[in-house]
Nucleic acid binder design. Structure first.
Lengths: 250, 250
DNA sequence: CGCCTAATTGAACTTGTTCAAGAACTGTGG
DNA sequence: CCACAGTTCTTGAACAAGTTCAATTAGGCG
């Protein structure tokens, strides 16, 4: 339901710029210098010593693992406000790479641990983020284990659209900064299948393409049905919350 | 690599009965009465108000979600020592059900939160468990997104075998308490595919069946290769640690 | 404006699913 | 202790969804 990855720790209700109750963790990074990464540049690689934590200010990141013969699995895309690099292990368990140009701040692991562990405000916030990511991971497992290609793509577009609408850019144009290969590696499909389904959704009028990296969702309700949220979710408090709030102007 | 589910929070090095550095969380449950669940009985359902947390003493649990038309995804199997029901939400996000006869203890969420949040020993332990589960979730995503049916089944058997060997029951007989349907719903396959692959592994001599709910791993190295740990993992500290330690008497 | 990469589209193929029997285990009761 | 019943598991054959391989097209950026 969410596209946030594991260990990426974003609150679903996060709105960049809002320094509200849920955004205390940003204070840990506030004094750090701003860094910049160009598209394709890696923040760190799987196996690197996990010395730092990062918070994204601007741009989008992909986080992935590679197995044996080069198969890649993107475990998540990270957006402004998200934390990157949280781990109890000595080394990072995945690679983090810029999709777009990215601005971020970093702190050392020690510094982060001290500040968060010492603060009765920050601790529960971190834990809440972890829980949200756990939930996102479970949803992704459901998607990968049991959803059809069309349901996967629909779910993905829906998650991105919801995130965008939560960020109050009232415009209906949804940005898809990642490539088709990124989408495929996130959804456990091939590039060709993703492409075919995007085409099909477009020709059915569910979405409209605006170049290759932006779409308009023309039929949100239909997209929800295609995503496999048809029957179920009646007793799922999150799904209910979502369907009650007017995500788009229907 | 591990079969622990999300929010199930077991430390990989956990050994039941060992009251060592990593097992302080058991103390939270120690005074509670022991409860018993028969096979098939649910501890709680997805959507129930999340009032309690549980720690398993004995037996195996499955944790799952259902989507729309009845498709089921098992997000994990839980073993003695594991915690069940950790969530920041008002309601449980999944159903937890006994596979075998299960003994466990429960505490209220409030009680758990107080005790853990008040203890500088317990807090990092809980966080470490969360991180382990996050790692397990990522591995499961890799499995579901990019591994073949044979790799999935091999990975699963390997994880179970490693868990068993870590629990120092030196016997080579590995218990598989769950049904083929459970395995299928965990691995994103059908019952028939799981069955065919188990048969194939047996006829190739990689494993030997002992009834339907126990196997002997006859060729651990071959199983590792089939699981897709062939090339990669050279710079993966965990994989390296595993392959260095003699998990079985080769 | 033109090149180069990314995306689309088509056709053949593969893997795993579905549907349909049949066999084997488990647990119960005689 | 054995037989029976019910379920779970196995096996086979047809099928389908998604992949693979191979061009072709289209965007985007210089």
């Amino acid at each position: 339901m969410y596209s946030e990855p594991m260990m990426a720790l974003s609150r679903q209700d996060h709105v960049p710029g809002e320094i509200g109750s849920g955004e205390g963790l940003a204070s840990v990074f506030r004094r750090q210098a701003e860094e910049r990464f160009e598209p394709g540049a890696a923040l760190f690689w799987e196996g690197d010593v996990a010395a730092h934590l990062f918070q994204i200010i601007e741009g989008v990141l992909r986080v992935y693992k590679i197995i044996g013969d080069g198969r890649r699995v993107i475990t998540g895309f990270l957006y402004p406000g998200d934390l990157v690099g949280l781990s109890q292990r000595r080394c990072y368990l995945y690679t983090a790479e810029a999709v777009t140009r990215v601005k971020l701040r970093r702190v050392t692991r020690n510094r982060f641990d001290e500040e968060v562990n010492g603060s009765p405000t920050l601790r529960p916030e971190l834990f809440a983020r972890l829980s949200d990511e756990m939930e996102a991971a479970q949803d992704q497992m459901v998607l990968l284990a049991r959803k059809s290609a069309e349901e996967r793509v629909a779910s993905f577009l829906l998650a991105i659209a919801r995130r965008a609408s939560a960020h109050l850019d009232g415009q209906p144009l949804i940005d898809l900064p990642m490539t088709r290969l990124d989408m495929a590696d996130y959804l456990g499909l091939t590039i060709e299948t993703v492409s075919r389904i995007m085409t099909r959704l477009t020709s059915r009028g569910v979405i409209a393409a605006s170049g290759r990296h932006a779409i308009v969702v023309r039929q949100p309700l239909k997209l929800e049905i295609l995503a496999g949220e048809g029957d179920d979710g009646a007793h799922d408090p999150i799904a209910v919350a979502y369907s009650r709030q007017a995500v788009w102007p229907h």
